[in-house]
Amino acid sequence: MATGGRRGAAAAPLLVAVAALLLGAAGHLYPGEVCPGMDIRNNLTRLHELENCSVIEGHLQILLMFKTRPEDFRDLSFPKLIMITDYLLLFRVYGLESLKDLFPNLTVIRGSRLFFNYALVIFEMVHLKELGLYNLMNITRGSVRIEKNNELCYLATIDWSRILDSVEDNYIVLNKDDNEECGDICPGTAKGKTNCPATVINGQFVERCWTHSHCQKVCPTICKSHGCTAEGLCCHSECLGNCSQPDDPTKCVACRNFYLDGRCVETCPPPYYHFQDWRCVNFSFCQDLHHKCKNSRRQGCHQYVIHNNKCIPECPSGYTMNSSNLLCTPCLGPCPKVCHLLEGEKTIDSVTSAQELRGCTVINGSLIINIRGGNNLAAELEANLGLIEEISGYLKIRRSYALVSLSFFRKLRLIRGETLEIGNYSFYALDNQNLRQLWDWSKHNLTITQGKLFFHYNPKLCLSEIHKMEEVSGTKGRQERNDIALKTNGDQASCENELLKFSYIRTSFDKI
């Protein structure tokens, strides 16, 4: 039985969820670079991206490699990797027998973001014989899940209580170790020597080791999670996991709180800001991140802002960003909400898709409305799209047979046209069989910064309504002859009103 693990408890099935942008060198404390989270699957090609990484700022997932063999891993080693800020997950990587050479110096898994409450997941690794993470000293947050690894031993010899604050939620089941077939031998045991430290858990006094050649490092209890030197002297209180010299914040392997210019500090002093819960960055760093993602459509890219001495992905609820200094300031009234469309555009074809934009005031991208039916549609669209004030790209209304009016965009005031449909149009209306009105132009103002209007096959939309939009939106004169079809717009509506004058002759039985 794995020490510190839980057996036999019912657990939810383990679901495996399925960018080499360097964020800056980590400095003297770390020998390499800070790398983003990685999802490495199918083959070993991307694994080489770990070569210079000291910190993975995010998670590391290595999974679904069915053609790899043990010899493929023999020359692979990433000794610079010290810390993973989120979680480490391995799933069905064939041929991998140990992690001792792959990650010989991995010391800390912070667990800032977890995989279903777990910071370390080893699942269905069919050839893994031992973990071998002999320098792993601290899992700051989260638990361990090690399950269905039929060859995995050296679990009962690990004292997880020396690595985690609590072992109650560890789930370590259905491994070879369960069948008591392992016969784990710690260093020196074969020669009758006791080389590794022994600890007591559940009444068992057991030597602690990761492999037959690597003991588990056990520091004096007084050192807590700070770690200790090879001689057993406690590291500085700002260290986490390990250090090369005692009581020196510049000799830590990793930091308990924050890293700044080669030393570990309790908090980031001005003019620095907390970033990702582990390091200090200056304003320029946060500003660069903001600008890199301002026009990016890459998933996970955030326009970072500053709030409460932190550089964070977005302002919290009730705050909006001051564009001059990136500071989050309290909103006066309802907060603006910028919604970034991942692929640059979004099609609204149902109430469900409209709900995804609920509360958005600025759309960074283009909207395509293609709704053919739905219950209580006008009210639903207004509830979900009615706060949109600005669209950076274009607005396209296409084959939306259920629409009679666009009044559900009740606050839309600006279409920038930074991206144009077919390279020309910022407003595009095609084949809307029941569209009769755009907006009530006596109450609604709309500016279209650039781009043209396109109207074709809107049989109940009168040309007068379209011409009014040209005047109000500032697009009059931009359109070419064929942009607004004269014969297919309003051709099934009563669009022309003329005053009919009647004269009559009164007659009676005795007068003409």
Rank of each mutant, 00 (worst) to 15 (best):
C243P: 00
F103Y: 01
L96K: 02
P197T: 12
N257A: 07
D184T: 05
N308T: 04
D169G: 12
L152P: 00
N195T: 11
D86F: 00
C235Y: 00
V55M: 10
C315A: 01
I56H: 00
M38R: 04
V108M: 14
H291R: 08
A156P: 12
K67Y: 04
N195P: 08
T68L: 08
A156Q: 09
L44W: 09
F78C: 03
R145H: 15
N135Y: 02
F116L: 10
T229H: 03
C301N: 02
N282L: 04
L88G: 00
D288V: 07
T229Q: 07
E51C: 15
S324K: 12
H236R: 02
Q61F: 07
I312P: 06
D169P: 13
R298N: 05
L131T: 12
T45C: 10
Y87S: 01
G111P: 00
I172G: 13
W210G: 09
I222P: 11
P316R: 02
D277M: 13
Q303E: 14
F258N: 02
L128C: 02
Y30A: 15
P269N: 00
R297F: 07
D261I: 01
L90G: 00
I163L: 07
Y118A: 05
L332N: 10
N117R: 06
N150D: 10
C235L: 01
C228M: 03
F115K: 08
R298E: 06
K193V: 03
Q299H: 12
G333R: 05
C255S: 00
P334L: 11
C228L: 02
N117S: 07
T68G: 09
P79M: 03
H226R: 12
S323C: 04
F103D: 00
I109A: 00
E49T: 14
E49G: 04
Y171R: 01
F205M: 07
S317H: 02
L174P: 14
T329C: 04
G132T: 02
Y118H: 10
N117F: 07
T140C: 12
D184S: 11
G95H: 14
N282D: 02
I62A: 01
R41G: 05
I185W: 15
S77Y: 14
C315N: 00
G241Q: 05
C243Y: 00
P336C: 01
F78A: 03
E168A: 11
E33M: 14
V253S: 15
K217P: 14
E180D: 03
P316L: 02
K217H: 05
H59L: 01
H307W: 14
N282S: 15
P316W: 01
A156G: 10
T85C: 06
H307L: 05
K191Y: 07
K193S: 05
N242G: 08
C335S: 06
K148V: 08
D72T: 12
C255V: 00
P104T: 01
P249Q: 03
S112T: 12
E238H: 11
C243S: 00
C182Q: 14
M137V: 10
K100E: 14
V108C: 04
L76T: 02
D165L: 11
D178V: 13
I109S: 00
L120V: 06
Q303M: 13
H48K: 10
F123L: 12
I158F: 09
I84C: 01
W160T: 01
G333F: 03
K191A: 05
P70Q: 09
Y171L: 08
P313T: 05
P246R: 07
D177R: 10
R297K: 14
H226K: 12
L131R: 01
E57T: 05
C328V: 01
K67P: 08
C234P: 05
I185D: 07
W160G: 01
V218T: 07
L152W: 00
M321H: 15
S98I: 02
G333E: 03
I139T: 02
P336V: 14
F91R: 04
E33D: 14
L63A: 06
Y134D: 14
S213I: 12
H48V: 09
V121K: 00
H226I: 08
D178S: 08
P316S: 02
R256K: 10
V200W: 03
R297I: 07
P187F: 12
L63E: 05
P334D: 04
T267P: 00
E151A: 12
L240H: 14
L106F: 02
N295L: 13
D86W: 02
H214K: 01
N105R: 08
D39C: 15
I56S: 02
V218Q: 13
G318H: 07
C335H: 07
P336A: 06
C53L: 00
E238N: 11
T157W: 05
H302W: 11
L240T: 14
A230I: 13
D101N: 06
L240R: 05
V253E: 09
Y134S: 09
F285L: 04
T229V: 06
C335N: 08
N322F: 11
P316G: 01
Y171M: 15
T194W: 10
L326T: 04
L240W: 01
H48Q: 15
L88I: 15
T250Q: 02
L81Q: 00
T157Q: 10
D288I: 08
S213W: 04
N175H: 15
D86K: 01
Q276V: 10
D178T: 12
C219E: 03
I306L: 04
A190S: 09
D247P: 01
F116W: 14
F205G: 10
T107K: 12
L164V: 15
N309R: 09
E181P: 03
A190R: 12
D75L: 09
R69T: 06
P336H: 10
E180A: 11
V126I: 07
S77V: 07
P271Y: 04
L64V: 09
G318T: 06
E147S: 13
K310G: 12
G37L: 05
N257P: 00
L128A: 04
K251I: 01
S112M: 15
E49K: 02
H214F: 12
R297V: 08
D248T: 02
C328N: 00
V167M: 00
S296P: 06
Q287K: 11
L89I: 08
I122T: 04
S112W: 11
Q299V: 08
P336W: 08
L90A: 03
I56C: 01
I222W: 15
D261V: 01
W160L: 05
P334V: 15
V265E: 00
E49M: 08
C53R: 00
N170R: 07
L332M: 13
L60A: 01
H59F: 04
H59T: 04
G241S: 08
L29F: 01
D261R: 01
E124S: 09
C293D: 03
C264I: 00
S77K: 05
R256D: 04
F258R: 03
C264E: 00
G318L: 05
K224N: 04
N117K: 04
T45S: 08
C228F: 03
I122G: 02
N295P: 03
M65E: 12
G111V: 00
I84K: 00
K80C: 05
E97K: 04
C280L: 01
Y319F: 12
A254T: 04
F283K: 12
R162W: 13
K148I: 01
K294P: 04
D178I: 12
